[in-house]
Structure formats: C-alpha cells, structure tokens
C-alpha cells in the first residue's frame, strides 16, 4: 500500500510536485501518465527514498519514508530505464550482490527462481555486458523482485526496448502481478499505460489532474480526449 499526503518537491525556484495526494491499495496496478517533465520520475524517486520531499508525507505499508527509510527500501523494488546492473559481473553475480544487500534468505535458490522467471537461466553465468538491452531489462526485473517486495515501482521501463522486447517484458510483468503486488508504473506512452494498469492517473506540471479506474474508460480514443483536456496538448 502506498499513501501519499500533501507531497511537494521544490528544486530551487522550480516546483516539481505540488500537493500530491494519492492512495494506492494493495494489489492495485496504477499507471501514471504524463508528458516529459511532469514530475513522474521525481515522484518515483521520492517514494523509493532516493530523493527527499520538500514537504508532505508518504507511507509504504505503514512505514514513513522519512522515519523508517530502511524498512521502506526492504519493501520496494524499482525497475527503471536504468538497469542498476554491473556490466562486468555475470547475471548471477549481480543478483548475488543485490541479494546479499537485501539479506535474502536461501539466496541461491531464490536466484535460480527469479532468473528462470525472467527466462535467463541459460545465460546466468554470462557477463552482463554481453546482454542485449532487452535481456538487461529482464534481468533488472529479476533484480527488483529478488527480495520479494510488496511494492514495485516502474519508471519508464520501456525506454530503449524494441516491440518484441517490450512484449516479453509485459508478459513477465503480467505473470508477476498475479502475485498480489502493488505496482506503480510511470510512462509517457498512453497505450502501454492503459493496457497494463487497472487504474490510470495523469500527472501534469506536478499535479494529478485525473485519476480513474480503467473500467470507467470506454476506449483509447475516449481516454485520449481526457488526456488532452488534462495536459492541454493535442495528441
């Protein structure tokens, strides 16, 4: 569960996020759409304790991000357009490193589970540098779910993926979502967001201008008209 109350973030004189209030229930998949520079990445970074907010509070499974950042980090997995992988280590070594940092129990067993979940069992002893972009991104899913987080944050995960790799990526995510995780995904690609999320929110200039469950959206054209209204841009 993610609950955000009155969250603001100011960089110098530039307001990145303005009084954000958002509640994401357990097991929900929320897609956060918005143009570049709307504050999506900043929001993800604040939730994952990488950046501290200027004001307001966030609790993750009842842990406050300011008071108990370490408890929060244990419960959060992040998949970003950056893979957070060490190119000179093998896939398995990368997971071992992160697994030890998260103090995962029965690490070797867990690694072989997640690495087969993302379909990379055969390449587990290869150096990551030799992987394609899509494979790296899949390995970064394995890295993010290694410690079995209750919350997954996806920050523009499709950046740099070709359609085939994106489809594989979607397939893996769908399979994971069955496991009752709360997911928040940011993307500027409307169709991807609509397809994946069961709730859609639009962030524009640091404010949430629309927040609705997917079943209220008739079709893509309907949503695009809403998006145009919220963002003020012709698509």
């Amino acid at each position: 569960m993610i609950s955000i109350n009155g969250l603001s973030k100011v960089f110098g004189s530039n307001v990145a996020l303005k009084e954000i209030n958002l509640e994401v229930k357990k097991g929900e998949f929320i897609a956060l759409l918005g143009p570049n520079g709307a504050g999506k990445t900043t929001l993800i970074k604040i939730i994952s304790t990488l950046v501290s907010p200027t004001s307001g509070s966030i609790t993750i499974d009842d842990y406050d991000i300011k008071e108990a950042p370490i408890e929060v980090r244990k419960r959060v997995g992040v998949i970003s357009h950056e893979t957070y992988l060490y190119d000179d280590l093998t896939a398995c070594e990368n997971l071992q490193f992160y697994g030890k940092m998260y103090q995962v129990d029965d690490l070797d067993e867990r690694i072989s589970t997640v690495i087969s979940d993302v379909g990379l069992s055969r390449r587990s002893d290869d150096i990551v540098r030799t992987f394609s972009r899509g494979m790296k991104q899949r390995l970064s899913i394995a890295r993010a779910i290694l410690h079995d987080p209750s919350i997954l944050l996806l920050d523009e995960p499709y950046t740099g993926l070709d359609p085939h790799a994106a489809a594989t990526f979607d397939g893996i995510l769908e399979q994971l979502n069955l496991m009752d995780k709360t997911v928040m995904m940011t993307t500027h690609m409307i169709n991807q967001g609509l397809e994946m999320g069961d709730r859609v929110a639009i962030l524009n200039r640091g404010e949430i201008t629309c927040d609705m469950p997917k079943n209220q959206i008739r079709d893509e054209a309907h949503f695009k008209s809403i998006y145009e209204q919220c963002v003020g841009v012709e698509l």
Partner: peptide, 15 residues
C-alpha cells in the same frame, strides 16, 4: 555511474 548503479546501491536497505 554506469547504468545508474549508484541509485541501485542507494535503494538497498542499508545505511
């Protein structure tokens, strides 16, 4: 800095 690993490190539940 490569692949944003520093962020990955900072996400780990350690001081």
């Amino acid at each position: 800095k490569e692949n944003g690993c520093l962020d990955g490190l900072k996400l780990c539940p350690v001081d």
